[in-house]
Design a protein around this nucleic acid. Sequence first.
RNA 1: GGAGAGGUGGCCGAGUGGUUGAAGGCGGCGGUCUCGAAAACCGUUAUUGGGGGUUUUCCUCAAUCGAGGGUUCGAAUCCCUCCCUCUCCGCCA
Length: 428
Amino acid sequence: MIDLRLVRSDPEAVRAALARRGDEALLDPVIALDQERRALQARVDELRAERNRASEAIGELKRAAKDDPAKAAEADAASAAMRELKDGLDGLEASLKDLDERLTDALLVVPNLPHPDIPLGASEEDAREVKRVGEPPAFAFEPRDHLELAGPGIDMERGARTSGSRFGYLTGDVARLWWAISRMALATLEEAGFTPVAPPVMVREEAMYQTGFFPTDRQSVYQLADDDLYLVGTSEVPLAALHAGEILAEADLPLRYAGLSSCFRREAGAAGKDTRGIFRLHQFEKVEMFAFTRPEDSWDEHERLLALEESIAQTLGLAYRVVDIAAGDLGASAARKYDIEVWLPGQGRYRELTSCSNCTDYQARRLEARYRPESGGPQPVHTLNGTAVTSSRTVIAVLEQHQREDGSVAVPQPLLNYGAPAVIGPAA
RNA sequence: GGAGAGGUGGCCGAGUGGUUGAAGGCGGCGGUCUCGAAAACCGUUAUUGGGGGUUUUCCUCAAUCGAGGGUUCGAAUCCCUCCCUCUCCGCCA
């Protein structure tokens, strides 16, 4: 969540920042409720102080009553007097709790403040192209899409029979290809100082709030019917929650994790969109990067995550471009997000392959993930996340960009060390 | 799933409903001593919110002993619900 102190000290700056993403109206209830709450807090604190003083006095009277029975009556009288104050206090405390909850609710729906340099606009098309790397392959033949190239290696019919639409099986060489891709990515990240993690993929509601997916994106998350658990759409959730409520040592930062997990997405708002193949699935696997940094280091770290994503894309021999996502198209937690869009010959255009976000202190504040700076009290760390590879889009990109006229795929050399077949398809 | 035992500060650990935000110990930090270090000794050592100020080090009030309710003038302590940990049995990868 955003910093309430900043809202108080410079509400106009916060409003202007939110206006860039079209969310400035969300600020008004926060300001109003905060003022109301502070006023009430002061009154409640006063009454509590009075109660504490009186209770202490009663305690002393009761002790004195052992020697002097007259003190007992005095204590009873004081108790009776305090009962009235208590009734009033109980009511005010209930109001304070209610106000607190309403303020928290109002605050939870306010998204992060976008970085000043990012493009304006609300849609995918408003993203700014940062650069293009590699030439989209020019085929002397009509390129096939990943489903044609994979043949029986991607089985959507049986996936649908087992689980429904947007589910598929990766089998044989395509499964080998994916596992090789994921192992290559994990090795790359481990080399770059990331700790590998096999995280839980079922989490409590609290973790969803802490990472900023709830309450805003609730409709895109699977909920288990008989247990208060949710299936994560990304291992960002359990990786972020790894240090929830902790005060980290400054010397330990940055902390970098690479998680490999299944990801589950309801794709509620995507009916009829990207229905062919494994581009948009309810379940896929992903290697995810996650970093906790000092506030002053997070923008460098953001560039570092992007560079790692690019390095992996380059290892896979992919042509891609990098875009800077528009303010209005950001997720709630992100202050800035880069996407790598990969050229897909089957679709004849660039499509999102990976993305990396700097969530600054927004997620950390919800997580209560802090660190202790050299001077001063604990303050929120910054958190960042980025996709390394996925079993859906990375697999598609490799198949489609490295296809040959006979319908086979020449698997990139670096993957062969990780168990990928050299060729997939008819020639294999 | 069944039965039982527990959750107190960075860690260990005490705590008859009334100066207990919390003894004691360990660890950390500062100091004395020392050429230096160790030892010893002295001091210090949580977080959050509100208010004030000589507005980065300060004062003050409030809250916090797994979480949330309740009883009470007053709860770490009593009651209820939930969460988690441990032990035994059952089951299982």
